[in-house]
Simulated assay, not measured.
Amino acid sequence: MVKVNIGQFNRLTITKMVDFGLYLDGGDEIRQGWGEILLPARYVPENAEVGQAIDVFVYFDSEDQIIATTEKPKACVGQFAYLKVVDVNAAGAFLDWGLPKDLLVPYAEQTRKMRQGEHYLVYVYQDDESERITASSKINRFLNTHLPEYLVGELLQGIVMAETDIGYKVIINHRHSGMLYYNEVFTPLRIGQTVTVNIKKIRDDGKIDLLMPQADKNDLSELENAILQDLKLNNGVLCLGDKTPPDVIYQRFSVSKKNFKRALSRLYKQRMITVEPQRICLTERQK
């Protein structure tokens, strides 16, 4: 039995080729399927043929007819995304989510009135009554409050949700929120920014502490080369050293101060640089 997930990518079989596109098997309507689903001609892959299974995103078009596309939206149902308002009318705000039909955020789903041209963090879901794909900026309602099963050290993708007095709240895996403390961040972050984080700790109450990932030993040779290249481009001198603040180092090389100092130590031991409190210099033989 074919099951179609609205607002998701589905692998569906081509049943019919027509001049204006092709039809896909959306399941028997008698068994609560969607019948044949149109994929318009402009989205049809080359060499498509009847019986072939292809991956398509399924949603409702501007006339509320079910339709398929091979385009990739900026978010699927069940995901959070930072999207721009392109229009506001009596129904609510409409967001650009990468498809021809804009995504509606009804006024009842807005934490504050949305304005055209601004970006907002939203959750994409399918409305139970209308079955339409809709968005909401009432983020906390959609976060999972059950005890997470992540492993300490696990690497995850996240979206910055909010800034607080102690750090940044980050949505991880489109399910939970975690805290990235200021002392674990080497450069300012912005709301809606996508970040890679590590699980530092899961507290007994289910709250999650996060870390920015650190470069490991295998990355240091690349970092050393970057430092040497930067030195050569700046006449053999960089105004970075042991006393340089961590955020300045991160903005320049995207690494922690700890790994920066490790790289300097290895370069120093190879007699490629000299290290002073406020600067590093190429040795004469490296110039």
Results as ranks from 00 to 15, higher is better:
residue 138 K to G: 03
residue 11 R to K: 12
residue 98 G to C: 04
residue 244 T to R: 04
residue 167 G to M: 08
residue 152 V to M: 09
residue 282 L to F: 05
residue 126 Q to E: 08
residue 43 Y to I: 03
residue 280 I to T: 00
residue 28 D to P: 05
residue 248 V to T: 13
residue 104 L to F: 00
residue 274 T to E: 08
residue 65 Q to S: 11
residue 126 Q to A: 03
residue 132 R to G: 07
residue 80 F to V: 00
residue 131 E to Y: 10
residue 57 F to A: 01
residue 72 K to D: 00
residue 119 H to E: 15
residue 285 R to W: 12
residue 64 D to C: 04
residue 81 A to C: 08
residue 156 L to Q: 02
residue 60 F to S: 02
residue 142 F to R: 00
residue 90 A to R: 15
residue 241 G to N: 00
residue 145 T to F: 14
residue 175 R to H: 13
residue 168 Y to E: 02
residue 104 L to E: 03
residue 248 V to Y: 07
residue 53 A to Y: 07
residue 52 Q to R: 15
residue 56 V to K: 01
residue 212 M to T: 15
residue 157 Q to G: 15
residue 54 I to M: 02
residue 222 E to G: 14
residue 113 K to I: 10
residue 183 N to C: 13
residue 70 T to E: 01
residue 133 I to S: 01
residue 65 Q to G: 06
residue 207 K to L: 12
residue 72 K to W: 10
residue 232 K to L: 12
residue 80 F to W: 01
residue 243 K to T: 12
residue 95 L to V: 05
residue 90 A to T: 09
residue 13 T to W: 04
residue 260 F to Q: 01
residue 221 S to G: 05
residue 31 R to T: 12
residue 201 K to Q: 14
residue 165 D to S: 13
residue 52 Q to I: 09
residue 143 L to M: 02
residue 101 K to V: 12
residue 131 E to N: 11
residue 115 R to M: 13
residue 110 Q to G: 06
residue 138 K to A: 07
residue 28 D to C: 13
residue 118 E to M: 10
residue 201 K to P: 05
residue 43 Y to W: 11
residue 67 I to P: 00
residue 146 H to C: 07
residue 278 Q to R: 12
residue 249 I to C: 06
residue 177 S to D: 03
residue 258 K to Y: 12
residue 136 S to P: 02
residue 118 E to A: 10
residue 186 F to E: 06
residue 188 P to T: 04
residue 174 H to F: 09
residue 44 V to K: 11
residue 218 N to F: 14
residue 84 K to H: 05
residue 129 E to K: 14
residue 253 F to N: 02
residue 208 I to H: 01
residue 149 E to H: 13
residue 231 L to G: 01
residue 193 Q to G: 15
residue 146 H to L: 14
residue 90 A to G: 10
residue 265 S to A: 13
residue 22 L to P: 03
residue 109 E to Q: 15
residue 88 V to A: 08
residue 202 I to C: 09
residue 215 A to S: 10
residue 34 W to M: 10
residue 143 L to V: 04
residue 115 R to E: 15
residue 233 L to I: 11
residue 130 S to C: 05
residue 121 L to G: 00
residue 147 L to E: 02
residue 240 L to M: 08
residue 16 K to Y: 05
residue 274 T to W: 03
residue 274 T to K: 09
residue 107 Y to Q: 05
residue 166 I to A: 09
residue 98 G to L: 07
residue 269 K to T: 02
residue 225 N to H: 10
residue 260 F to N: 01
residue 151 L to P: 05
residue 242 D to F: 10
residue 200 K to E: 06
residue 43 Y to L: 01
residue 108 A to R: 15
residue 189 L to A: 09
residue 204 D to W: 08
residue 286 Q to T: 03
residue 128 D to L: 10
residue 93 A to K: 00
residue 266 R to W: 10
residue 82 Y to A: 06
residue 96 D to N: 12
residue 270 Q to S: 15
residue 94 F to N: 00
residue 57 F to D: 04
residue 144 N to R: 11
